[in-house]
Design a protein around this nucleic acid. Structure first.
Lengths: 329, 329
DNA sequence: TATTAGCACTTGAATAAAATAAGTGCTAGG
DNA sequence: CCTAGCACTTATTTTATTCAAGTGCTAATA
């Protein structure tokens, strides 16, 4: 366990370094703590031995290590309430009764991205939690049509398909069959049900049943299963740890394009606010992801704020708490 | 007009500089042209006076100016056919009969982005060219529902709306009213028709008609009107003119996020391949956009390749021609 | 008249050396 | 246990030096 003074030192260094990415030396701390710089140096050395601080070179000041940030977040950080002005901006969105929940969330996260200069993400629930509500087919011309899938949570997915020698009648019949028989099934089980419950039936009355079955099968199989909405991608470029390092930018941007990586943020079980620092983030050693799940009626999902490891943890966690509260009622 | 020799010099400089972003000096050209470097210098000086070449500093070699690229593209460039290997890769996609056209295009442009290290874009027709085909409403719970809009070109857009005290019956009636009366209308005229043709009618039999009307009105008004699909955003980072210049990266990425800017690429009338160099591109002085419209049956749109001004014009134009041909049949 | 050899001159890039600033570890004494 | 003091390290900044590439211009040449 850390002594009172060590805690103070670590907290100060983390917060100072977050404000400005410059290693923190003993001199400034000696003023804060009203003791000599030598004393501070001894303490810093101890904190380094504990793995909470690091040096950038032999004679540099100290910088928080990943474990240092972790300790700060878990033990030292004091939550910061949002300031009134920021709250006002968000309330304008939340008070707007016209908006559907997903739009409310998107807009408010866009605002948060602007306020903080961090990237924000909304993830919309997993496909095994989404049940098929209804499918609709709209014919476009002789051979192509659009299939629209709606889930019980209001997610919509669509795909155009091409069919030869299948009549509109046959398609309509099949659609109502699907709606009657397998609506209510989790999306990722639909393909299976199609095979065992629909295929045998349409085999009887549809000439090109193989083709028709295949088309629907593919539609559900390709169901991308996740809404991913990233806001403020370019905010990452404002952060000094990236703006000097093209390789890092490349890496981070590529990860932000990768839906699998983003979706993996949703995985982790619990409903509280979670903080993934550096290596824990799966994005980059210098990136932190802070996320929480939300649930409002039958809509649920995850919101996340992605920024540098040097993120303003106290502020962001406060914001996310505020967001969660407002979304959930 | 340029002399034979001047043309040769300009062509050589453009192509050399595209291969490697280093100013081209008179020495190498003297070898190519089999004349003295002094002669070349005189010619280069003349080309500079014509505004086709530039120097990066008083004693540097020459670099093509924007006008130089323009002249090259319009007069000197020899189209380059795609090589067999690249063609093969694309043919695998084009030969796949299963895919809907939009998927074929997306996949092939993804491949082109990988082959060239340029960013690619598909734009899906303007809203005034899209006619309303059909709308569908799927109720999600007591008060919310999803509205799905399908256009005659197979574009799908959806939006959830919230309604209080409106019965499913009333909504259904309104939907079939819309489908019967204004299907076939250009999307961006639907709002107006709603007001004059639908509103008066539903006023008679729907209690909360104001609310219902508003909901539909918003749905069409927010219709984002364009499919924009950007592939290989991060490829820009591979280009040396950007990878050393964060400000440029920021600018370019922000523009690539901006749908209005991307859509403006579609504007320009004509169906042929168009090249917008540097300032003409609306994205950045160092960016070139090469685009063409395509039309296949009732689906149409624009494909574009976005890269540095130092783009391999001959290769990209060749590819785009090949793409257009394949899409259109 | 068009070309070319020759040369002085300019500039950016690379390298090296020196000066500066910030900060550390350690020792010894209060 | 704390701290004053000092030798030592390292990154950063500044200045000077050299090097390579390339130009423009002049005068001679074909």
């Amino acid at each position: 366990m850390l002594t009172e003074r060590q805690s103070k030192i670590l907290k100060y260094i983390v917060e100072k370094y977050i404000k400005e990415p410059v290693p923190v030396g003993s001199k400034i701390l000696s003023k804060v703590l009203k003791c000599s710089s030598a004393t501070v140096r001894n303490e810093m050395s101890a904190l380094e031995d504990l793995g909470l601080l690091e040096k950038t070179h032999t004679s540099s000041g100290r910088v928080p290590s990943e474990a240092g940030y972790r300790f700060y977040v878990d033990n030292l950080m004091e939550l910061k309430k949002m300031n009134a002005e920021d709250m006002m901006r968000l309330q304008i969105v939340f008070k707007n009764q016209q908006l559907a929940l997903s739009d409310t969330i998107a807009q408010s996260l866009q605002i948060i991205s602007d306020m903080t200069n961090y990237t924000t993400v909304v993830l919309g629930g997993n496909s095994h939690e989404n049940l098929l509500k209804q499918i609709e087919v709209v014919p476009i011309d002789e051979e192509s049509m659009v299939v629209v899938i709606v889930t019980d949570k209001g997610h919509v997915e669509h795909k155009s398909i091409k069919l030869q020698d299948v009549s509109t009648e046959e398609v309509k019949k099949t659609v109502s069959l699907i709606n009657n028989l397998i609506s209510g099934t989790p999306i990722d089980e639909v393909s299976a049900k199609l095979e065992f419950e629909i295929k045998p039936i349409i085999g009887n009355y549809v000439k090109q049943h193989e083709q028709l079955y295949n088309a629907f099968y593919h539609v559900f199989n390709d169901y991308s299963s996740h809404d991913v909405n990233v806001m403020g991608r370019t905010k990452m470029l404002e952060q000094p740890e990236f703006s000097n390092n093209i390789e890092k930018i490349k890496n981070v941007f590529n990860k932000l394009e990768d839906k699998d990586i983003l979706n993996s943020i949703e995985e982790d079980g619990d409903n509280n606010i979670k903080v993934y620092i550096g290596g824990e983030s799966k994005i980059d050693d210098d990136v932190t992801v802070i996320k929480t799940r939300f649930k409002n009626g039958n809509e649920e999902g995850t919101i996340a704020i992605i920024g540098p490891k040097r993120m303003e943890y106290d502020r962001v966690v406060g914001m996310l708490e505020y967001m969660k509260e407002n979304i959930e009622r």
